[in-house]
Design a protein around this nucleic acid. Structure first.
Lengths: 193, 193
DNA sequence: TGTTAAGCGGAGGATTCCTCCGCATATACA
DNA sequence: TGTATATGCGGAGGAATCCTCCGCTTAACA
């Protein structure tokens, strides 16, 4: 009963192509600041029917999640390298800065951030878990090294960062977020800094 | 040309009553978790027509802002007492905790928080300014006393707190927010703590 | 009590989300 | 290559929501 049955047919090429188009159009639109773009409009720009969009992505959140999923996986993959190159606390700092950079570069939009770090929505479960594992790992190492307190919830740090980035209004928000990284790190250290 | 002309007629009593009803219904709904309640439904529960709702509050954000305005003013008014009773850093800490308490007690909803601390929307300008003045004042005092660094943007701290509170999902979010307050304070102190 | 401006209220236009299902075609196999 | 069929396409349209518009009602004032 595990995974028997027929060898499934290879996915249709037009289906994959349409999916790619939709993702590209959506990513472009989000990056351009068109956060509230109608899904019909995305379908139109991608040259597919609205039904096709909804088959691939059953609702708006699913599309958003898919747009950012690849980027977030990449963010998580950066952990080992950082851990190897820096002492624990600096690795954590570097990764948090990377998180801010990604938000800035990809114009990650508020619903995505909230889904990722607020996380009741099952849709964001994958990316949310990936992110949490990443920072948990870095934090655990830093705690073990004795540099960080052990009563800090890593996810709180992410939420705080997402908080500053939400509605990244003023031109200085990125610097603001970088400063916050330092504050959060400093505030999480053991007394024997 | 300043404010001459006729003595304006006293506002109609039914108008004020309707406005109050709408605010009460909206606040009750928000507190009960009905964040996405339709405006038509709010008007229905308040026993007024939809047109009446829209005359008093031209859009959803305006209604939300009005619901929380009074509470936020009260939050700002707490500053002098706190400043008188505590040393600078502790006054700041106490106020930040109060901020978290308010968010929890009033079930302050995400759009309100984002409007308040993200603040491009002109609608939230009043409350946003009130909040910023409050924390600016506390922070300035703490910096002057030599306990806090002077390169910390007070608004960043608020945003961080709002971030954890956004989508206050898990049952522990309030403790989480309280812990974050301590982290932020600790991270903002001068080296000579 | 009469005048009048302030306020009421709901029909309905506009927008967006999402579903449904008949039609088209890429894939697999002979 | 030809055929069978599952997979995918696409858009009409129902439902929900936002917001506007304007004729009717009524509270305030003299």
């Amino acid at each position: 009963m595990t995974d028997e049955k027929k060898p499934p047919r290879r996915p249709r090429s037009d289906g994959q192509r349409n999916r790619e188009n939709l993702l590209t159009v959506a990513r472009t639109a989000f990056t351009a600041g068109e956060v509230d773009i109608a899904l019909d409009e995305i379908a139109r720009r991608a040259g597919v029917g609205i039904g096709t969009l909804y088959r691939h992505f059953p609702n708006r959140d699913a599309l958003i999640e898919a747009v950012y999923r690849i980027e977030l996986d990449r963010l998580a993959e950066a952990v080992p390298a950082l851990a190897a190159q820096h002492p624990p606390v600096e690795a954590l700092r570097a990764w948090m800065r990377l998180f801010v950079d990604y938000i800035a570069a990809k114009q990650m939009i508020a619903p995505a951030l909230n889904g990722l770090v607020g996380g009741t929505s099952a849709l964001y479960a994958h990316s949310s878990t990936v992110l949490q594992n990443a920072i948990d790992q870095l934090m655990t190492t830093a705690v073990a090294s004795g540099d960080m307190r052990n009563d800090v919830e890593p996810i709180d740090l992410l939420r705080a960062l997402a908080g500053v980035s939400n509605y990244s209004a003023g031109p200085g928000w990125e610097n603001s977020a970088k400063r916050l990284v330092d504050i959060l790190i400093a505030g999480s250290r053991t007394s024997a800094s």
